[in-house]
């Protein structure tokens, strides 16, 4: 397609908000302020190899993977139901799924704090069923819950959109050839919907691995994740160099995992959001 003049605003946008910040990030990652002025250094990256920081990175990735898996387990059936014949015409259900996203996610996370806190609704219910130690707020579980709740729509929507575009004739053909529903699901629907699944996974995993506000509010500042660590370097400590170095490493991790995803994605064309 020929590049036309009205694509320039977008290019300018990209340069200002993506390219320049990225260059700044690289600059801060590999420099240090000494008496002699700015010097090239790898110290910030090296400092990250301290087991304490590696554990934070590892914990963030593990929590993000757990969150992605739970989202997939819940999200795929939901996508199937929403796209099924019975509900296809009723757009209301899909709408209901989207409506919570109209409310700021910070507010929704604060709402969870009230639900989970001691003597809150969830606490009281769990206590009623004699669950020992029902304190959920400020634990790992609360953080995962908050992430799943906030990011689930990003899993459901791409899957839903791929499933609705599925050619129904193919399914009918499979039925004519005597396949039962399980076989159709396994051999036809799931493989054809993989692009949606993959964009869903990327769209959940990426915000989950970088989140800092969910872990701060629901994790109580205990379970600091890599996002918190970066935020702390910029907002509290003022060590932009180390903060940039952590961001840089995180970016590499994300790019690598996206690269792996991309490899699978290319095998199934179309339908994906990317």
């Amino acid at each position: 397609m020929k590049r036309t003049w009205y694509s320039y605003p977008y290019l300018v946008w990209m340069v200002i908000f993506i390219v320049i910040p990225f260059l700044l990030l690289l600059f801060y990652t590999f420099t240090v302020n000494t008496d002699k002025g700015l010097m090239f250094t790898l110290d910030h990256i090296k400092r990250l190899w301290d087991p304490i920081y590696l554990m934070v990175l590892l914990r963030s990735i593990v929590l993000a993977i757990i969150c992605t898996i739970i989202c997939l387990i819940i999200g795929y059936p939901v996508g199937l139901i929403l796209a099924s014949r019975e509900y296809r015409s009723k757009k209301v259900l899909a709408l209901l799924f989207v409506i919570p996203m109209w409310i700021n996610f910070l507010l929704r996370t604060y709402a969870w704090m009230t639900l989970l806190e001691k003597d809150g609704l969830v606490y009281t219910i769990l206590k009623f069923f004699r669950v020992p130690n029902p304190q959920l707020l400020y634990t790992d579980q609360a953080v995962v819950l908050g992430m799943v709740y906030n990011f689930l729509p990003f899993m459901v929507l791409p899957i839903y959109s791929v499933l609705t575009k599925l050619d129904k004739n193919i399914i009918e053909a499979a039925e004519d050839l005597g396949a039962n529903y399980i076989t159709i699901l396994k051999r036809v629907i799931v493989p054809l919907s993989l692009p949606g699944v993959i964009s869903g996974i990327t769209m959940v995993f990426m915000p989950a691995v970088t989140t800092f506000i969910i872990s701060r509010l629901l994790g109580g500042g205990h379970y600091i994740l890599v996002g918190n660590l970066i935020e702390q370097q910029f907002m509290v400590v003022g060590d932009w160099h180390f903060g940039s170095a952590i961001s840089f490493v995180l970016m590499v991790v994300i790019l690598v995992s996206m690269g792996i995803m991309r490899k699978y994605d290319n095998e199934y064309e179309g339908g994906a959001i990317w």
Partner: peptide, 12 residues
């Protein structure tokens, strides 16, 4: 002090 606090917060 900053380093100590960062490590306390990051520690498992």
């Amino acid at each position: 002090y900053d380093r100590v606090w960062t490590e306390v917060k990051a520690a498992t």
